[in-house]
Design a protein around this nucleic acid. Structure first.
Lengths: 223, 223
DNA sequence: ACCTGAACACCGTTCAAGT
DNA sequence: ACCTGAACACCGTTCAAGT
C-alpha cells in the first residue's frame, strides 16, 4: 500500500527547507565554501535572497542542516554488527570519507556539538568502547581521545580544502611540499627533511587510520 | 656593549609590519577573529586601510604572521633537555595553552603547513620520536598521529572560540550541554547520557593530555 | 502564508592622488 | 618610498510591499 505523503502542494518549484538545503549542498560540493552565497543560492532556486530567510534562520543554520544531511547518511550506513574495534574504525573512516567528498562538512562539527550529526558519532564511539570492556575509570579518556582525533582531522581537512580550490591536484601539492622540505636547513630541520619523501607518497586516509589504530592500541594497554 | 639596532627612524608612529602585526594580535585577543578588520586595524594605527597594504599583502598573510609570532614564542620556551616523552608533552601542552590564550591561532596551522610555526612543531615531535627509538617502519605513523591530534584539537578549539564570544562563561556552557545531554532519549543515546556528568566537570587540558598519553602508549606497543 | 527585490550596514581590496 | 581615503565589488540580513 503506497500511502502517499499528503504534501500540501505538488508544484516542484515550491520552496522548502529541504529543497534549499539540497541546493546548498550542490553549490558547496561544486564550488566550495566560498561559493555558497544567498544570492547564488537564490539564483539557483530562481527567487530572491529574502525568500530563503522565510525557511532558514541564517547562513549558520543552513550550513548545519546541510552537514547533518551528509553525516546522517554516513552514520545510517555504518555496519554495526561487527567487532567493536571494527565499528570504531568504520565510523572513523565514514566521517573521513564524507569530509573527503564534502570538505565543508568538517567545519560544522564544532558549530553545535549536540546536533544530531555529532551526537551520532559520539554515541557510536562511546557505545563500542563500553562493548570493548574499557573500564569506567578510563572510558572518558579513551572516548575523548578518539572523538577529538576524528573531529580534529575532519576540521583540518576542511580547512585545507578551504584554502585550495575544489579541483586542485593533490599529488602536485604533496610533491611541492616535499620539494620545499628537502630544501630546508639540515641542521635545523633534520627530521622534516628526512620524512619529506614518505610524505610525498603518503595516503591521508591510511595515515588517519594508523592514528586510530595507535589510539586503540593505547587504550588496550590500560583497558 | 649595547649595540643599538640602527633603525632608520625612531618615530614611534612610523608604520611597519611588526607594528601592524602587534596591533592585529591585540585586536584578535580582545575581540576575537571577527573583530580584525582592516578598518579597525587602520583606526587603531591612526591611518587609512590602504596604508596597511603597503606592508602586508593581504589579510591571510597578516593572520599567518600573527600566528607565527605566537607559536614562535611558545616553541622557543619549550624545555628540550628532558626525556623525549616529556618534551613531546611539553610541545603539545605549549600549543594547547597558546590556543587557549589566543584561540584564533588554531585556524592558522593549515594555512601554510611549511610556515615556521608548523615546521617547528613538526620537527620537535619527530625528533623526539627518533630519540625515543621508534623504528623506521612506524615512525611516520606515530609522527602523523601525534601531529594530527595536536593540530586537530587546536583547530577545534579555535572553531569553538569563534562561535562563542571571547568572554563566555566556560562552566555555564559545559553545564548547559550536560543538561541537554541528560534530556536525550535513553534508548537512542545511552552512552552520551551517562557521560554527561563527567563532561560537565571535565578539564579540556587534562583530556587533551590524556589523549597524547594514549597515543604515546600505543606507540610504545609497536616501538 | 509565502515571496520579491531594493536597501542597509558592513566587508577586503584597489588605486589615483598626495607627501 | 610611503601614506591617504574615496571607491569598487562584493557580502549577510532586513523589510516594506506585493500575492
Amino acid at each position: 500500500m503506497k500511502t502517499d505523503k499528503n504534501q500540501p502542494e505538488r508544484r516542484s518549484d515550491a520552496l522548502s527547507k529541504a529543497r534549499i538545503v539540497e541546493a546548498a549542498i550542490a553549490i558547496l560540493d561544486s564550488g566550495g565554501e566560498g561559493a555558497l552565497t544567498f544570492r547564488a543560492l537564490a539564483a539557483r532556486l530562481s527567487t530572491g535572497p529574502g525568500a530563503i530567510y522565510w525557511h532558514v534562520a541564517n547562513k549558520n543554520e543552513l550550513l548545519g542542516a546541510a552537514a547533518d544531511e551528509i553525516i546522517g547518511g554516513v552514520m545510517a550506513n555504518v555496519e554495526r554488527d561487527a567487532a567493536p574495534q571494527a565499528v570504531i574504525r568504520a565510523i572513523a573512516l565514514g566521517v573521513f570519507d564524507a569530509i573527503d567528498r564534502h570538505p565543508w562538512v568538517g567545519t560544522q562539527f564544532s558549530r553545535d556539538p549536540l546536533h544530531s550529526a555529532s551526537l551520532q558519532v559520539f554515541e557510536g564511539i562511546g557505545g563500542r568502547l563500553q562493548a570493548l570492556g574499557v573500564s569506567e575509570r578510563v572510558l572518558f579518556d579513551a572516548w575523548s581521545a578518539l572523538v577529538n582525533y576524528i573531529l580534529g582531522v575532519a576540521g583540518q581537512n576542511a580547512a585545507n580544502a578551504r584554502i585550495q580550490p575544489p579541483d586542485t591536484d593533490r599529488a602536485a601539492v604533496l610533491g611541492a611540499i616535499a620539494a620545499r622540505c628537502a630544501r630546508l636547513d639540515p641542521l635545523e630541520f633534520p627530521f622534516v627533511r628526512q620524512v619529506a619523501a614518505q610524505f610525498r607518497d603518503h595516503d591521508d586516509r591510511e595515515q588517519f587510520l594508523a592514528g586510530i589504530d595507535l589510539i586503540l592500541a593505547g587504550i588496550a594497554t590500560i583497558r
